[in-house]
Structure formats: C-alpha cells, structure tokens
C-alpha cells in the first residue's frame, strides 16, 4: 500500500493523531503534577518536542522498521488504540449515555472506523479536514468562560519543586505521544513538498497553541485543588457554561468529540495499515476486520473505571519508549549501517 501526501494533508493527519485522543484529558495530569507552573512546564516540553521533531525531520530516512520493531510497534498500537477506544467509551458513558451497554457503544465507535479502513486510502487521509471546523467552535465555546477567568491562578511559578517539574514535563510530553507516526508518515509526503524549517515550525506552533490554550483556559477557570477531582477539565468547563440558546455546551462538545475520536481512530489505523501492508498484500480486507475485532475485545475488557485510571497513571511511558527511545535507537542503528528507507524500498 502506498499513498502520496501533500504537505497540508500530512500536517492534518499528524495534527489529528496528536490531539485526537488526548485533548480532553491531557490537562489534568499536567496541572495536578506541575501545579501553578504547569503552563511553563508545558512550554518547555513543547520546545523539546520541537527540537525532537526537527531532529526527526533530518533523520527520518534512517527510520526503517525491521521485523522485531514492527512487531513491537504493532503490539503497542493495538494496545494504544484499544485503550483510546475504551477511554472514549468511558467518557461517553459517563457524560451522556450511562445506560447504553458497552457493546453497543463499541459498535458505534468501530463500525465507522471499519468502514473507512476498508475504503480507499484517500478517505482516511482526508477525513481529518472536518477537524478544522470543530476547532473554531471549541475556541468560541471555551472563551465563553472568559468572565470567570482568574488570572492569579497562573502565579507564582516558584511554588513548583523539581519533582513537580519532572512529572509535569513527563505528562506534558505525553501530549505529543504519537511522535513515531511523524517518522512513519513522513516518507509518504511528495518529494517536492518542503517541510523542514518554517512549515514545520508553524505546524508545531499551532499544535502547541491548541494545547496551551486548553491548559491555560482550564488553569484560569478552575482553582488548583479542583484538578484533583476533575479528570476532563475541558468538558467540565463547558459543562459549567450556559449560553442563551444552549444550556449544556458539554453535550455538544462530547458529540463533537466522538466525531474527533473516530476520525483519529481512522487515521491511526491508516498508519497501522501503511506499516503492515508495506510488504504483505494478501487478505488485506480480512486482516483489517480482524484488527478491529482485536480492538473490540481488548477495549471491552479495559473499559472500566479502575483499569482506565490505572493505565492513565502510567501513560507517560509510551512517549518515552515508543516516541523517543526506540525511534532514536532505530535511527542511530541504521545511520551506523548507512541504510535509508530509499535503499530498502528498492
């Protein structure tokens, strides 16, 4: 399977992959660990990520997945996707549909993804466009809370100790946990599209601005102690908003968020397909169906408050292992051997 991406398409996919699953939940761990300087910690971590992606941009051609590494990534992705689905299901069932059985919700999440994954690759590539429309709604809704913002919540930054900084940055990095997708998708971008330099900076900056906006607005809105209670602050903030025509903005946002989750799922499975079907071409359709069945089963079993809470606690690990260490290992190993993706594809 092979696709050609334009620069915009590439960025939209990455944007969706980065923000899709984590956007409503990322703020709580960062703030509850980073305390009042959480926003500063996040800025620092984002600078690190920018440097990392600049590095990846220079060395992506050395990122070749061998048999073992492919296997590792496949296992990680399977778990990651199942967890994302389970978590989304959990959100939906706490916020709007408490009595709908898990199986029905799983079907609602996985059927569109299955449909899109069985369609042409262009569909999965382009589906992220809708994301853009929702961002405007989202920013507009959140800014509604402007009157209740308390700017003194952002200071003093000196209160956070080094432990707060460490954990805060680990969880901040988690916002960019899908960095390996950048490496994988990068080679599908058309040859004549320029990415390094300004375009990459603008892209990372917009991603960072989206995250920072959410972190700042919830920090301004809630007092620090509330973050120990609230796990989806963005939703909770919207829950507390009331505009003249709609009383519960969070319902609309959950509605939008279901949309976004499914789109992210579709994009993620596209990445999985790209890696998996690079050499294997047989039984493509039935393999995709089986993959969805796997997600279905795993998500069904971990969609419980206890397991989700536990997994979330350890979810700073994936970035370190799969987004940072493993790619750097692979890149340096191949650099020493002098192999690039351009040789291996021949």
């Amino acid at each position: 399977m092979n696709i050609q991406l334009t620069r915009i398409q590439f960025f939209i996919i990455i944007f969706t992959l980065f923000t899709g699953f984590v956007y409503i939940s990322i703020q709580t761990p960062i703030i509850s660990h980073g305390k009042r300087s959480a926003w500063l910690i996040f800025i620092a971590s984002s600078i690190f990520i920018y440097l990392l992606l600049v590095f990846y941009e220079k060395t992506y051609k050395y990122f070749i997945l061998g048999k073992v590494t492919t296997m590792i990534y496949h296992l990680y992705w399977l778990f990651h996707l199942s967890f994302a689905v389970a978590y989304s299901m959990y959100i939906v069932s706490t916020w709007i549909s408490p009595y709908t059985p898990k199986i029905a919700l799983l079907f609602l999440f996985l059927l569109p993804s299955l449909y899109a994954s069985l369609s042409r690759a262009e569909t999965a590539v382009n589906v992220g466009i809708v994301f853009g429309i929702f961002i405007f709604f989202f920013i507009f809704f959140v800014l509604n809370a402007y009157e209740d913002f308390e700017f003194r919540n952002l200071l003093p930054i000196g209160e956070s100790g080094w432990k707060d900084w460490m954990w805060g940055s680990l969880y901040s990095l988690n916002a960019y946990r899908n960095a390996e997708c950048y490496l994988i998708l990068r080679k599908f971008v058309m040859k004549d599209e320029k990415i390094s330099g300004m375009p990459l900076f603008i892209f990372i900056f917009s991603l960072f601005a989206m995250f920072l906006f959410s972190i700042l607005s919830v920090m301004l809105y809630f007092s620090m102690e509330e973050f120990n209670l609230i796990s989806e602050p963005i939703l909770y903030l919207l829950h507390a908003q009331e505009v003249t025509f709609v009383k519960r903005l969070d319902l609309i946002f959950v509605f939008i968020w279901v949309f976004i989750t499914i789109i992210t799922l579709i994009n993620y499975i596209l990445v999985v397909r790209l890696v998996h079907f690079q050499k294997v071409r047989k039984f493509a359709k039935s393999r995709i169906v089986i993959y969805h069945l796997f997600i279905f089963v795993i998500a069904y079993f971990i969609a419980k408050f206890e397991s989700i809470q536990m997994i979330r606690q350890y979810y700073w690990i994936p970035f370190l292992v799969f987004g940072l260490l493993l790619p750097i290992l692979i890149i340096s190993w191949n650099k020493i051997r002098g192999r690039t993706i351009f040789d291996s594809s021949k």
């Binding site: 939906v92 709908t100 609602l108 449909y115 369609s119 569909t123 509605f255």
Partner: peptide, 20 residues
C-alpha cells in the same frame, strides 16, 4: 436509538461515504 451519539455515528458514516 442513541441520541447525539447516534447522530455523530450517522454523520461520520455519511462523511466517509461522501469521501469515498
């Protein structure tokens, strides 16, 4: 059947269909 979630589900199927 499902309220908003149902509409979101339908809308995304519709979107994928339009994309296809």
């Amino acid at each position: 059947f499902f309220g908003f979630i149902g509409i979101a589900f339908g809308a995304i199927i519709l979107l994928i269909h339009l994309l296809n």
